[in-house]
Amino acid sequence: MEKNATARESALLQVLSDPGKTYRPLFFRVYNQEDQKLLQQLQQTVKDLEVHDQILSQLHEYVKICYLTKLNTGEDPAPFIAEVLGTHTPETYGVWVYYPWSKKLVHLLDEEAFVALRTSRNTYKITPEEREVLRSKKIGVIGLSVGQAIAQTLAMERVCGALHLADFDSIELSNMNRLNVGVQDIGLNKAILAARKIAELDPFLDVLCFTEGITEDNLEAFFLENGKIDILVEECDGIDVKISSRLKARSLGIPVVMDTNDRGMLDVERFDLEPERPIFHGSIDEGMDTAKLKGLTNEEKIVILGKIFDLSKISDRMKMSLGEMRKTINAWPQLASSVALGGAMVTDTCRRILLSEIHNSGRYYIDFNDLIK
């Protein structure tokens, strides 16, 4: 590396030399001379680079929402596209985005136009004014199994402008009954994979990964780095983290939302509005030593989880499954349909909390066995 290399050159060289744990794309605005030079360097270095340039298609779509009342059906959009381009050519307009993990270079509208077009079909279920409010919000997700569907749906609907994702675990083949992953992803950290999928959907969302999961050393950073998160979505397996993260959220006045993947059960704890509210609706002793909760056996976990979730209210099939733990199955059963439902429920709830549409804490069920018979 040259001694006079710029910070961006150094970042490019670092990504090119070690893309394995990278989850953030690189941006090149080639109307800028430095970016043009860096993009040329990228193109010369990555021999099997895959280029995707559909900027004209995006511009055609974009002028339809910008000139809705002026552009008649069947009318040539070229004059309106020229107006949007201004002094740029199609080649220099917008931004080129490089995804190191797939070696794909994609030509996109730049952030403001991209967000406006990508979310245009949300309007007016989410108004333009609400969209801007949500862009300023940050959501933290702990646990990227069920949490992957939630993070992806939050990003798809653009309920926030930034995400913190935490998970120490990696993709296994048995995860693929419910996670939207491919066989080539086995062994990849779950948080990194979720971040990559989000970047491929919307590279302008700001995502920060905590690939060691939540620990005593990074708990503060997860909640506060680059500004406090506005909602905690907790979807992890560790009871110690379930408790410690809620205690931290309560101390910071951050609401917690959790989907439990059985009977469509959703928990909402509004620590932002109820700073003295007991965690888990008062179902457990908050004075438990969380350090002693690490590494519990499934049998030991069930005792505590029984208090948290009220085993009398879980589904009959889940009750049967718990009785088979360590006999015929070795992990909690989960279904893709339930995970997808959780993504929808949590996203909708988070959006309405952030827009001050709901204010209550509580436990709620959307149980298809009760609703559809």
Rank of each mutant, 00 (worst) to 15 (best):
T69A: 15
E300T: 08
A116Y: 05
A82D: 13
R352Y: 10
L56A: 10
I314N: 01
M288S: 05
H359S: 14
Q148R: 07
I243V: 14
R178M: 06
V183F: 09
A194K: 04
N177T: 11
N226Q: 13
I65E: 05
F223W: 01
L355P: 03
K319H: 11
A155I: 04
L134T: 03
R178F: 03
Q36P: 01
F271A: 04
M258L: 12
G94P: 04
S245G: 00
T260W: 10
E324V: 06
K197L: 13
L42I: 04
D110G: 11
G20F: 15
E132Y: 09
L105E: 00
G94M: 07
Y67L: 08
E83S: 15
T69V: 10
L109W: 03
L305T: 09
N261Y: 02
V241C: 05
I198N: 02
F27S: 08
K197H: 13
M265F: 01
T22E: 14
R270P: 05
Y124V: 12
M318E: 11
C209E: 04
R363L: 07
D289Q: 02
N175F: 08
K373W: 06
T328C: 02
T211P: 10
K104I: 06
S120V: 10
T73V: 14
K125Q: 11
R270F: 05
Y62F: 14
C350V: 15
G74P: 05
E274S: 13
Q44T: 09
G182V: 02
S102N: 10
I186L: 08
S57Y: 15
F204C: 06
G342M: 02
A78G: 02
R363T: 13
K292W: 00
D285C: 12
Y124W: 12
R178Y: 06
L266H: 01
P79D: 03
M345I: 12
E324A: 11
Q40G: 04
K242F: 07
R135P: 01
L56Q: 13
V303M: 08
Y124C: 11
P100K: 00
F309E: 07
G140T: 00
L341C: 03
A336W: 06
L105M: 05
Q148F: 05
F271K: 04
V146Y: 10
E157K: 12
S145Y: 01
E75G: 09
P333H: 02
